Simulated scan of single mutants.
Amino acid sequence: MKKALLVIDYSYDFVAPDGKLTAGEPAIALEQSIADRIDAADKNGENIFFMMDLHYENDTHHPEHKLFPPHNIAGTPGRELYGKVLEKYKEIEGQDNVFFLDKTRYSAFSGTPLHHLLKERGIDTVVLTGVVTDICIMHTAVDAYNSGYGIIVPESCVASFNPDGHKVSLEHFKNTLGATVEP
């Protein structure tokens, strides 16, 4: 098994108490666990992908426009990685095994070079961390499954603003996608 760590949407807007679309305390509680995962992946020489939601001011054509308030707007502080995750990124930024990719849909695979980068590096398993469990983590997990990747979801590294959606998603990962859900 050759793994890659995906850190999905762990931005100020999704995590900070005053973020534009915050998951709040559940997301803040992930900070150290995700930072620890980044450290471990880096020490093991694994590839680390920071997948960041990207939106543009006044974009009325994006499908999320009608569903959510504006968030993760290009060039704003809300789009920056949050807390210790930002610190870890700054420590490893520029390494050959570290990538920062923009995404404009829920899934980290949709419209990004992620699949290509994973395949050319011989990666067969993705470790999904970040927010929001029942939206971007879920859609990424489904696309990973449909593309033939093994999936690991550390429960201590994913969160949602919807506790019921979070719980259902963890069950879906295990029972429908065959993912390993770790503590």
Score class of each variant (00 low, 15 high):
residue 1 M to L: 12
residue 3 K to C: 08
residue 3 K to D: 06
residue 4 A to H: 04
residue 4 A to D: 06
residue 8 I to R: 01
residue 9 D to T: 11
residue 9 D to Y: 00
residue 11 S to L: 12
residue 12 Y to N: 11
residue 13 D to M: 08
residue 14 F to H: 10
residue 15 V to H: 04
residue 16 A to V: 08
residue 20 K to Q: 14
residue 27 A to P: 10
residue 28 I to Y: 02
residue 29 A to G: 08
residue 29 A to M: 04
residue 36 D to K: 12
residue 37 R to C: 10
residue 42 D to Q: 07
residue 43 K to T: 06
residue 48 I to L: 05
residue 49 F to V: 04
residue 54 L to T: 15
residue 55 H to E: 02
residue 56 Y to A: 03
residue 58 N to A: 10
residue 58 N to F: 15
residue 58 N to E: 07
residue 61 H to S: 13
residue 63 P to F: 11
residue 67 L to H: 11
residue 68 F to Y: 13
residue 68 F to P: 00
residue 73 I to S: 06
residue 73 I to K: 13
residue 77 P to G: 07
residue 78 G to L: 05
residue 80 E to Q: 14
residue 80 E to H: 05
residue 82 Y to C: 09
residue 82 Y to S: 05
residue 83 G to Q: 02
residue 84 K to N: 05
residue 88 K to S: 07
residue 89 Y to E: 01
residue 92 I to P: 00
residue 92 I to C: 02
residue 93 E to S: 15
residue 94 G to K: 03
residue 98 V to N: 01
residue 98 V to I: 14
residue 100 F to W: 06
residue 100 F to P: 00
residue 101 L to H: 05
residue 102 D to M: 04
residue 103 K to Q: 06
residue 104 T to G: 09
residue 105 R to E: 08
residue 105 R to L: 06
residue 107 S to M: 06
residue 107 S to Q: 06
residue 109 F to Y: 12
residue 114 L to Y: 00
residue 116 H to L: 07
residue 116 H to P: 00
residue 117 L to S: 02
residue 120 E to Y: 05
residue 123 I to R: 05
residue 128 L to V: 00
residue 132 V to N: 14
residue 133 T to F: 04
residue 134 D to S: 14
residue 134 D to H: 15
residue 138 M to Y: 15
residue 142 V to E: 14
residue 145 Y to P: 09
residue 146 N to V: 11
residue 147 S to F: 14
residue 148 G to D: 09
residue 148 G to C: 13
residue 149 Y to S: 05
residue 152 I to N: 04
residue 152 I to Y: 09
residue 154 P to I: 09
residue 156 S to D: 15
residue 158 V to E: 04
residue 161 F to M: 10
residue 161 F to N: 12
residue 162 N to Q: 07
residue 165 G to S: 03
residue 165 G to H: 02
residue 167 K to L: 12
residue 167 K to M: 12
residue 171 E to S: 12
residue 171 E to N: 13
residue 174 K to V: 12
residue 175 N to E: 04
residue 179 A to N: 10
residue 180 T to I: 07
residue 181 V to M: 11
residue 182 E to V: 15
residue 182 E to L: 15
residue 183 P to C: 03
residue 183 P to S: 11
